[in-house]
Design a protein around this nucleic acid. Structure first.
Lengths: 257, 257
DNA sequence: TTATCATTGTGTCAATCTAACATAATGATA
DNA sequence: TATCATTATGTTAGATTGACACAATGATAA
């Protein structure tokens, strides 16, 4: 967690360190308890949550900035990342929010400070293995936790809008590219994969047709083990065929033209 | 076309007018002579072409900035626009280029000038009716013209990359959303629509299967007229059913889950 | 005037895919 | 040993797809 000294430094010197008027925000999806979850910060100075985000260092790529933020919030490297939209409406950022927050932090923020400018934010979503994440709050939040999506908590500024657009993108991509490799543990069961699809889509699927269709893609392989420690019949374990999976990521799944 | 006075003003005062470090670039697609074309500027100070682009006014939405640029280059309002990617690599913009260009223009550009900063650019593509466009160059170009895509001319900076990504996006979207309403005249023939699909995909399609599939979407309706003034058998004219078309734009075409 | 020919309109058919549904196997719990 | 929730696998009719055939049209050539 960033110290107050660091925060003060960012407020006062950020203008020299970061690209001005541009931020990145990240919708981090995880899968747990048969539901899609999103990692959110509980803001310190307002009773709302916020998406993890940050700024781009002057010699850093936008993707790198997001990876850096992701590492800080989850402890993970090499996360699956996808840019999905850039939000450029003039009234989307809330200048008062920063003023209020810094006032409560006891940090001076004067007129003309870089944080009081309008910001365009680049939206990314990340897919992570829930069980590998160690959520970590930042300097302006009191906690970092997983939250359900339906309904999602009230978020600051236009973050609900950003979250919805991320989910929408994910839903669309489900139809023409493989998903799961980054959200599930290495070994998983068919019902788990199906539940993942169902929670993303928000609707139930037929078990048998789902299995046939997924298998027809050839991106997962059945292992010779079954899941242990479960009630009822033990389901087989599967794992992704990473080579085929990456091919499908590149070439797409759905029948196009 | 912007006068030199305006250009000088933008160079010297742009820092106050526009969001810093952010630009927009637009890949404008048109359809003519059975081929997909892209509208490019021939740069005045280097033997390369460039995508039409611009900057975002301090109280303007990113989309509005693109519409403004589009209006200037094509003379058209209400163009179909789609944001497809934001390019945020640190070395993508070329500071020397602006220096050289301004030197040749005889406009002073001093160290610290806003144009010499690194820029993140938001990429949009536009689909326009070729026959309605009146190409207009800008202050830094000597002409604005349609160009073929395969092969596309050499473009400045990372514009070839941007163009490729736009085309790739368009190709993918072809599989799950309707396209054509913005690229074709109000009345068009089935072969024309097919050629459009073929030029976007870069591969031939079966005439009969194409017709069956397109008609099954229910987004176009056959008119009671045939195209006149053509050699060989006169093909029927069709038009888009705008209501159904917009529904399909919203809900998607391909069978998902 | 008639034949030719490129092009368009329409149709067929087998193979494949899909949605909806049925039944058998498994293994913990009653 | 019976029950039960759950998983594994199968069936079938109908829709979709890919590959292809053939007739109709109307300008151009013979």
């Amino acid at each position: 967690m960033a110290l107050k000294k660091d925060l003060k430094n960012i407020v006062q010197e950020g203008g020299k360190m970061f690209l001005p008027s541009i931020s990145v925000d990240c919708v981090i999806f995880g899968f747990h308890g048969n539901e899609l979850k999103v990692l959110l910060l509980q803001m310190k100075h307002a009773s709302v949550h916020g998406l993890p985000g940050g700024f781009i260092l002057k010699d850093e790529a936008a993707d790198e900035a997001v990876s850096r933020v992701l590492k800080e919030r989850t402890g993970l490297d090499n996360i699956f990342l996808q840019q999905f939209y850039t939000f450029g409406e003039p009234l989307r950022s809330d200048k008062k929010m920063h003023l209020t927050a810094m006032k409560k932090e006891g940090i001076a923020i004067v007129k003309g400070n870089w944080l009081l400018e309008r910001f365009v934010t680049i939206g990314y979503y990340a897919l992570v293995d829930f069980s590998q994440v160690l959520p970590m709050q930042d300097a302006l939040s009191i906690s970092c936790d997983w939250h359900p999506l339906r309904p999602a908590p009230a978020l600051m500024m236009d973050h609900n809008n950003i979250l919805n657009k991320a989910l929408e993108t994910l839903q669309q991509q489900l139809s023409y590219q493989p998903i799961g490799c980054n959200l599930l543990p290495k070994k998983f069961t068919m019902p788990e994969l199906q539940k993942l699809y169902e929670t993303i889509l928000g609707k139930p699927l037929d078990r048998r047709n789902f299995q046939r269709r997924i298998l027809s893609y050839g991106i997962i392989k059945k292992l010779k083990e079954v899941k242990t420690g479960v009630a009822h019949k033990a389901p087989f374990l599967y794992s992704f065929d990473v080579k085929k999976y990456d091919e499908a990521l590149r070439d797409g799944l759905g029948r196009g033209w």
